[in-house]
Design a protein around this nucleic acid. Structure first.
Lengths: 188, 188
DNA sequence: CTTTAATTGTACCGATAGGTACAATACAGA
DNA sequence: TCTGTATTGTACCTATCGGTACAATTAAAG
């Protein structure tokens, strides 16, 4: 009995494992153990080994955010896109029970391997949000500050909700952040 | 040639290594490589091995925050203690170039090993800050929300400043958070 | 200067890390 | 059905993992 995979099917599985175990904590044997995918397949699709796997996951995450969040913020109706962002963020991170892989990689030495990708993810998020805020009539400087505050706040909410292991704190914090952002839109 | 250590001297060194490499990324050989301390000494002071080393570091960090930040928040003049907190936090995290070990451990599977210590660190921080806010005249509910927002915001600032690798963003975010907290003190 | 206990360097251990080689298998197109 | 390519399981490699054992060395007390 043999199961045949495609690269696109494997990447999300790898994503969950890297999220849970971190880069160093993710071993090939644990990947096999959790997914049933053997080394043969893994190195067939990712000849660069573990590092290429993690890079593929980062690119996948980045792509998801690009189409689901950044592009709407840049192109669609600003207020609607911002509102949709909060909903999508809450869904994506499963109300705080799922962490941000990019943020986690930023904290330890893993950052050195992927620093351009990590940096880019956050720069583009902040910039897309900033542009949306400007379109609502917010001044340039205030828009940047508000965008940084929101993106930074989301990362903090993820850390805190995992640390406290409380169901509702992520949603509560997201609501506070959304209110702050709404305040930045109308006035100032 | 032989150097003699004490446990108290080793713990801070281990702290910096765990901070940089994470729990899984920290190996005994890398500890030796960076500190010159061999396995003999390491297992003499920490018979429980790597896990005991990390636990000792967490306890050390916790102790520092307890005396430098939590106790003043509970006992000293509330406004002065809050002001001192922001300065101490900025110093401790070296303007964002040093991460929060407890927050980092919270993100991956390492959390399972130390979840009570991780939880406690944040619960006590939030609670001490909440009490200080109440003493300034802030209502109970608003105080809890503001305390959560501040502690969560600090963690987010650490993630973001590492990810962007920008010198000034940590200080900027801390200033914003301090202003929010100041606003919670006077009114509401 | 001894004695004694605390501390440390070195040599080891089995298990597992990431990675390679390659034959066996599955599958798509002719 | 046959053929060639894509995919996969297995065996194997070296390096290193966390950990143990213990003799050599050090510092402290008398």
């Amino acid at each position: 009995m043999k199961t045949v995979y495609e690269r696109a099917d494997i990447v999300p599985l790898l994503g969950e494992i890297f999220r849970e175990l971190g880069y160093e904590g993710t071993t090939l044997s644990r990947i096999t153990e959790r997914t049933g995918i053997g080394k043969g397949s893994l190195y067939h699709f990712f000849p660069g080994g573990k590092e290429e796997m993690a890079a593929a996951v980062l690119a996948d995450v980045d792509g998801w955010f690009e189409t689901a969040i950044y592009e709407p913020l840049r192109q669609d109706d600003a207020r609607a896109a911002i509102e949709a962002m909060w909903i999508n963020v809450n869904d994506y991170f499963r109300s705080g029970s799922r962490i941000c892989l990019v943020g986690a990689f930023a904290l330890d030495e893993t950052r050195q391997r992927f620093s351009p990708a990590i940096r880019d993810y956050f720069v583009r998020w902040i910039d897309a949000l900033r542009l949306a805020l400007v379109r609502t009539g917010c001044s340039g400087e205030a828009a940047l500050a508000a965008a940084e505050e929101a993106v930074s706040g989301i990362q903090g909410a993820l850390v805190l909700s995992r640390a406290l292991d409380e169901r509702d704190i992520f949603g509560r914090t997201l609501n506070r952040l959304a209110e702050r952002l709404a305040a930045a839109q109308s006035g100032n």
